[in-house]
Simulated scan of single mutants.
Amino acid sequence: MDQILVLFGQDPSISIVAGKYCIWLIFALFGYAVLQALVRYFQTQSLIFPMVISSTVVLVLHIPTCWALVFQLRLKENGAALAIGISYWLNVILLVVYMKYSQACKRTSIVFSTDALLHIKEFFCLAIPSALMVCYNMLAMHFNIPYGIGAAASTRVSNELGAGRPQAARGAVHAVVVIGITEAIVVCSAMFCFRHTLGYAFSDEKEVVDYVADIIPLLCLSVGVDSVLVILCGIVRGSGWQKIGACINLGAYYGVGTPVSVLLAFVLHLRGKGLWIGTLTGASVQAIILGFMTAFTNWEKQAFLARERIFYDAIQAYNGLV
């Protein structure tokens, strides 16, 4: 990792530290992978409360653990990476214990067997395009809010379609879109109203404060587009359109966003703002296309197709067992 960073022009001393940090973070990567599978398992059954409890417990313990590793044991940045891994695995353990002993999970308890390999092809056909749908993560702190709404939309829409309830799926889509737009309006309004003071969160220098105030309108546009886009992506995943969503994502960002970024940043010399506007343009194109797809969707047909896939998978599984 340090050699890769140096290759991209990073300072060698920073690259060495980052390389060590990545090595210590390997422990966390495995925990994160297992945790994500468990989170989806609980989400599909609307078992939100145990996840809230486990996350709260982990958060309370993470702070002193990180402090002890970083300052008391003098592991510095490596201690921070190790603390992340410990927290992920602790969350995994809490959820696994709940799954094993709770009556709510009695009928859906995970059993490890070779039967899971029967559907590995179908899984990757959905997983890979879903990963390609996520290109940029702007405004990470705010991003978690619409991302959570989008995850809820994905779960609810897929469940309703699988149950053969197209009207409920349509209602869920309308609800999450309204929630997402409302949330974006509230956040953007607050940022715009306090644009002349937000800069003091980063620096006391007037030049920095004025620059933050100058880019707040662009920031508000990014918040609005990201809020709607991530929710639409959740709807797309829940509807089983991962391949279409991946193609739209790649086309919007690399076919539209990247050329616009190059033009504005390097030809018109807008520099950082040009790159940002280009990325925003790509996200806007993606949001518009997904919005039209969602608006003109025949949910009765989608429910029929979802049920058809369920029965097909059940038949395939039965044939595999026989």
Rank of each mutant, 00 (worst) to 15 (best):
A68M: 13
A175D: 08
A190V: 15
G320A: 12
V285H: 06
I16W: 04
V285A: 06
V236H: 08
S261R: 02
W241N: 06
C66L: 12
A190M: 12
T279Q: 15
F112P: 02
H142L: 04
G274D: 03
F42T: 00
M293R: 11
L61N: 04
F112S: 05
D226M: 14
I48T: 14
L82D: 07
R271L: 03
A83P: 01
T114L: 14
L232M: 13
E122K: 09
G291E: 08
S261T: 13
L38H: 00
C220W: 04
W67Q: 14
A172W: 01
T258C: 11
Q72T: 15
A18I: 11
I216F: 02
Q36E: 14
M293Y: 11
Y98A: 02
A303R: 08
L82P: 01
F202L: 12
L161Y: 03
L268S: 10
L73C: 10
V176F: 06
M141A: 14
K20Q: 15
C220M: 07
I145G: 07
E205I: 07
A80D: 10
A306M: 04
T258H: 09
S15L: 00
L5K: 06
V209R: 04
T279P: 01
L126F: 07
G255K: 02
M141V: 13
R165I: 15
I4E: 07
F123D: 13
D226K: 14
I53A: 11
Q286K: 12
P146Y: 08
C105M: 06
Y21K: 00
A83S: 09
C247A: 15
L290C: 05
G272E: 12
L69S: 01
N298Q: 08
G199F: 09
A131I: 15
Y32F: 10
K273L: 12
N91H: 04
N159A: 08
H174V: 12
K100M: 14
Y21N: 03
V212H: 06
A317Q: 03
R195I: 03
T155F: 05
I128M: 07
R156T: 05
A81S: 02
N78G: 06
A201V: 13
S261V: 07
E207F: 02
V176T: 05
R74N: 15
C247L: 15
V92C: 10
G238I: 04
K121A: 05
Q242P: 02
R74I: 01
I215H: 07
T279G: 14
A295M: 11
G274E: 02
C135F: 06
L38I: 08
H62I: 10
V230W: 03
G240H: 06
V96W: 07
I215G: 07
R195C: 11
I26C: 11
T297N: 11
L198G: 08
C22M: 13
L250R: 01
G257S: 06
A152G: 07
I120M: 12
S46C: 09
E207A: 13
G251D: 02
W241A: 03
P64H: 09
Q103M: 11
V256K: 05
L25K: 13
K243H: 14
V70P: 00
A151H: 02
A151D: 05
Y200Q: 14
E205F: 04
